[in-house]
């Protein structure tokens, strides 16, 4: 019995087979683990290490470098308010102050119910809609205080489930073609495999890799950390 679901492990192996070196799949598979758990649990790190063929310490060492890979629990909704230059010129720090009051936490913290983590974020490339923010990587822009309150209310009520999957779900589209499992003796690199890369038109999408299936679009896993422990982030506290 693995911690990561069988489907996740199978897809992780498919990702490994896409790259000339297995370790290249490390970060994509970390995203998958976060899709299931909302953060990178130690058990997941162990299994990622096994799939990729490195030590758990190496997975942790890589993951801890990156802002989007959470080695401690994060809220179900990670609200990242950009305060960089363009958003700052549009009042982002006022918005962040307001968000701290609304959620009752400081930037870098997580609400006691585990629902929200608030971040003082760097530029997220939404500058034409400043001040902007992301919730779990999904954009919201030109926000007034009232609109922020409404956003929080809607998230709490689950009304934005379609638009904002639980934290950790990066990509709701699975690669459904061009997959060949290394275990099956093939290789994703064309020219080195005897197996056809694309499924024939009669076999339908998602068959080459076995697991993918583009119909599998919805988010899986709870994704919520359910903890009051604030996520310790690399230099993400508010000044």
């Amino acid at each position: 019995m693995t911690h990561l679901s069988e489907e996740m492990i199978a897809y992780a192996r498919q990702l490994v087979s896409l790259y000339p070196e297995p370790r290249s799949a490390l970060i994509p598979i970390c995203h998958l683990a976060q899709e299931q758990d909302g953060w990178l649990r130690p058990e997941a790190i162990e299994e990622i290490a096994a799939v990729v063929g490195v030590s758990p310490a190496e997975v942790f060492g890589t993951a801890s470098f990156y802002d989007l890979l959470h080695t401690e629990p994060a809220g179900r909704y990670v609200v990242s308010i950009c305060t960089n230059i363009a958003c700052m010129l549009a009042g982002a720090y006022d918005l962040l102050d307001h968000a701290e009051k609304n959620l009752g936490i400081k930037a870098g913290g997580t609400t006691p119910d585990g629902l929200f983590t608030l971040e003082d974020a760097e530029c997220i490339a939404g500058c034409d809609n400043a001040p902007c923010l992301q919730v779990n990587g999904r954009y919201f822009g030109k926000l007034t205080r009232a609109e922020f309150d409404k956003l929080v209310e809607d998230l709490r009520a689950g009304e934005l489930a379609e638009q904002v999957p639980p934290h950790g779900t990066l990509c709701r589209v699975r690669r459904s073609v061009g997959l060949t499992a290394r275990d099956g003796g093939g290789d994703a690199r064309l020219g080195t495999s005897d197996e056809p890369e694309r499924p024939s038109s009669t076999s339908g999408g998602g068959t080459a890799g076995g697991v993918a299936g583009s119909e599998r679009g919805g988010a899986t896993g709870g994704g919520t950390a359910g903890t009051s422990q604030p996520a310790r982030r690399r230099r993400r506290g508010k000044k």
Partner: peptide, 27 residues
Amino acid sequence: IRGEMALGIERVTQALNEAYEYGAVGR
């Protein structure tokens, strides 16, 4: 693709699936 660009990653992944099916990528 930058990890913060969830929609961009989804759109390009979807487009890549379509491009393979169409025959513009792959073998």
